[in-house]
Design a protein around this nucleic acid. Structure first.
Lengths: 342, 342
DNA sequence: ATTGGCAGTCACAACCGGGGAGTGCTAAGG
DNA sequence: CCTTAGCACTCCCCGGTTGTGACTGCCAAT
């Protein structure tokens, strides 16, 4: 196992490499950091770290760079989540003032996170599957069209338009709406779906087809959106750091647009005690994203965890700062969403 | 003025340059195209084109490259909008099947356009300012919260949550809703705003504050969204064609995320007789986008033009194909939106 | 007007050689 | 046993040089 000072050496290698973008050698370490030892001693430590595959040398005779494993050790053991600067706190306060609109709120959050970290920022919409039904609204648009609106306790609103076969009776529609709300209000989505499946049977035969059509549409509406969405910002930052990627960033940008890959990746990330977790380099290889790192945290609304947010960038990123920013933003967002639904 | 054959030479220079990404010389022209003349004659024509500033030579002795002006002449006089291939038509048919959800519809459209052109695709949301009010819905969420939903005849739905001071009387809320719909249904948004401004005065004094709060919120809701949105896809294509940009594509990506610049650019583009128009290179300089071209077309819903869609890419793009694709997609989208609201 | 020939220009790739940063090793010292 | 100084070695990088090839512009002939 690597000793105490060797770990210190690893820490400064990661820090200097992230800052300078250049392989770091033993000499520059003793120059820039007050180790009480000579360069030769540092070289011995570096030889140890290389045996453990925590660092590697790009060419026979150049400085060392951290490996994936090295970053992992750094994140797990060495990174201090330094508190945000006053300027950063100020930015959060001014950006994230409470808003009435969830969409707007998430867009602001993702932009803020992108600015704080100078990386691509991602915020997942509150998972429908973890939400409860707050209200269902049926609005007659014309005599053969109805708009259904689906509102969850996390503030999410889904609407869709439905063509019905038989002309609509507005009074009856109001009755259906009232009875649907009584039946599913407050239920989780799975329970609500089950309830809606047999809901039409409570109506007399001549009304049955119409009600069935409405409930089928509602069920579909929930199901179609089970596949959740991401909102993102700062893709330009990916181009800014392009040199950090050995290949092209093209597949990365494609994955970002595709969303589904990132949603899967999010779903596999579980929080450690800080609530913040990182997935580094080859750990993402199964998603075809072996050259990037993702730092993410869950956030909550109405008291229970609903979704994740985080940032994505090159392996060589400032993990300390980014993890602190992700944690802070997740907490703020949780607080605001909690306030909102109280 | 440049003669007939010189224009033919310009055409093949643009075509070959777009295809090969390399400056095209006189020799390669006579090899690849059946002009009945020798390379020296082509050189004379090229000298003419250079005098007219339609082409330029990167350095003293290399092939020629079209200038902005050259692309402009090509687009205006030489580009034949070749009809789409069967494969492309098929792609449009399978992608753009009618959907009940405007959001979904536009997302599919923008992805399709991105696939057809291999460029960044942009679709503007139907302008609220050109829409009419179809329906206003007020939904009580709790005894102090109301959700207002605003639906336009272009299928656009805006919702927002409102905290009210005094407890809500559901019956009264229903009455307010009915009277608001009677007052503003079918009006253009400017008229609707004016009507709402004095709407509360129709109610007795003790009701006045509550109604005023609701109408104020509705007015705000319309105003806040006057600033319209874009949906986009294919930003990865910008990276793929990165060599086509002399500087960095960073500012371009920033402008795309910012949206407001692109919306301004869209608003200044007016259609020519084809409905499709291009803005090339320095023509976009005032927007800080002097190195890109935009091809766009208006589209319509409910019979009147509501917004634009198009693609954005490097100067060196396949204008013929892209203009044809933009035109075709705009027509399809117009047809579907027309069907929908009928 | 068009053509072939020819000299001139310039980017680009390949080659070379010195400088420098950094390493591993060894032997001496605490 | 850890640390240190010294030293030989490796290999990237950078600047200068040269040769090659593609293309042009011009001119005289058709």
């Amino acid at each position: 196992m690597v000793s105490g000072r060797s770990l210190d050496v690893l820490r400064v290698i990661v820090q200097d490499y992230v800052a300078s973008r250049e392989p770091v050698g033993s000499k520059s370490i003793v120059e820039r950091h007050a180790f009480g030892v000579s360069a030769a001693t540092i070289r011995n430590d570096m030889a140890l770290l290389e045996e453990e595959e925590l660092i590697a040398a790009p060419h026979t005779s150049s400085g060392r760079v951290p490996t994936d494993k090295g970053y992992r050790v750094f994140v797990d053991q060495l990174a201090d989540l330094r508190p945000l600067t006053p300027a950063q706190r100020h930015a959060i306060d001014t950006f994230l003032s409470t808003s009435n609109d969830l969409d707007d709120m998430l867009v602001r959050t993702v932009r803020l996170l992108s600015q704080l970290t100078h990386q691509v920022a991602l915020v997942q919409y509150p998972l429908l599957s973890k939400s409860r039904v707050r209200h269902v609204e049926l609005v007659p648009l014309s005599n053969t069209r109805v708009m259904s609106v689906f509102i969850t306790d996390t503030g999410r609103v889904e609407q869709r338009v439905l063509d019905v076969q038989s002309p609509i009776d507005e009074v009856f529609l109001a009755e259906v709406r009232a009875r649907i709300n009584a039946a599913v209000g407050g239920l989780g989505l799975a329970d609500a779906t089950a309830t809606l499946a047999t809901f039409a049977d409570l109506f007399p035969a001549e009304r049955h087809p119409l009600v069935k059509q409405i409930t089928s549409s509602l069920i579909e509406q929930v199901g179609a959106n089970r596949q959740d969405r991401l909102v993102m910002a700062g893709t330009a930052n990916l181009v800014r750091t392009e040199e950090d990627f050995s290949g092209s960033i093209f597949p990365v940008l494609e994955a970002i647009e595709e969303q589904v890959t990132l949603l899967k990746l999010f779903s596999e990330m579980t929080a450690d005690q800080n609530g913040v977790t990182a997935s580094i380099g080859r750990e993402n290889a199964e998603f075809g994203l072996g050259e990037i790192s993702v730092v993410s945290s869950g956030y909550a609304a109405s008291g229970s965890a609903v979704a994740r947010l985080g940032v994505l960038g090159p392996l060589r990123m400032d993990y300390s700062n980014n993890m602190a920013a992700v944690r802070a933003v997740a907490r703020y967002l949780t607080r605001i969403l909690g306030d909102e639904s109280s």
